[in-house]
């Protein structure tokens, strides 16, 4: 079943010479995929991820997420849509600095007005899953970059989203942290069938992805699915 469909989307930044960050991209991502969108800097992968995630709007084209055309939603509706459907992991400084690991993971569930008991159980379960059950009460400044990214993954998964979008999640991590983070995400993908879509130019991520979509100048130049 498709969770993300883009139909011929364009994102053009106006100027003396207009820049086509995304140039007629059509993709179909099905449930349970572990997909990497790759390409050199400026190829449009982050812009594409932002459009898929409802953070940005395409200049033209359709973005259908969970059977809903999100390109038609207002900014406020998009915030609600993101809250209930999408988990995000960004490159760095993902977490709210004044909240502990537990509170950061709980944050999105609080916005969803989930019951306390449900929140507590889910937070404990996820922090255990990312190997940080013992760092619940640590603030981001008391954790390493890798640990912070693992908390970010836990936060992204807390509201049980349809899929997780990760924008260069390993860009600031050393190889051990990268390997740990990828192991966790791969396991969650395998066990819970959660769809992961990464934008990355990290070869370690690309090697672990089952599908690799390559962008250049805003266009798909290859789309390879590996077994």
């Amino acid at each position: 079943m498709s969770v993300i469909i883009t139909k011929n989307i364009y994102k053009t930044y106006p100027g003396v010479v207009p820049v086509h960050a995304v140039n007629g991209v059509s993709i179909d991502i099905t449930e349970g995929e572990f997909t990497a969108i790759v390409g050199p800097s400026g190829s449009g992968k982050t812009t594409l991820l932002n459009i898929i995630g409802g953070l940005d709007k395409p200049t033209s084209g359709e973005v259908i997420v969970n059977n809903q055309d999100i390109s038609q939603l207002s900014n406020n509706e998009l915030i609600d849509f993101r809250l209930h459907n999408i988990g995000f992991v960004f490159q760095a400084y993902n977490l709210i600095p004044v909240l502990t690991a537990k509170e950061n993971v709980e944050f999105v569930m609080l916005l969803q007005k989930r019951a306390k008991e449900e929140r507590d159980n889910r937070v404990a379960e996820l922090l255990d899953a990312v190997g940080l059950g013992d760092r619940m009460n640590n603030r981001p400044s008391q954790m390493s970059g890798g640990q912070q990214q693992r908390v970010a993954v836990a936060r992204a998964l807390a509201p049980k989203p349809k899929f997780v979008l990760a924008d260069e999640p390993t860009a600031n991590l050393d190889s051990t942290s990268t390997s740990n983070l990828l192991d966790i995400m791969a396991e969650l993908n395998r066990k819970e069938n959660i769809t992961f879509v990464f934008s990355t130019h990290d070869q370690r991520v690309i090697d672990r992805a089952r599908r690799v979509i390559t962008l250049e100048d805003g266009k798909i130049v290859s789309d390879v699915t590996r077994e």
């Binding site: 995630g53 953070l55 406020n76 915030i79 609600d80 993101r82 809250l83 209930h84 995000f88 960004f90 400084y93 993902n94 709210i96 600095p97 944050f107 999105v108 916005l111 969803q112 936060r155 992204a156």
Partner: peptide, 15 residues
């Protein structure tokens, strides 16, 4: 940046 992350993950701007 922090505000960007907070709205990205679903916090209403009003809040």
């Amino acid at each position: 940046y922090e505000f960007g992350v907070m709205t990205a993950v679903g916090m209403k701007k009003r809040k």
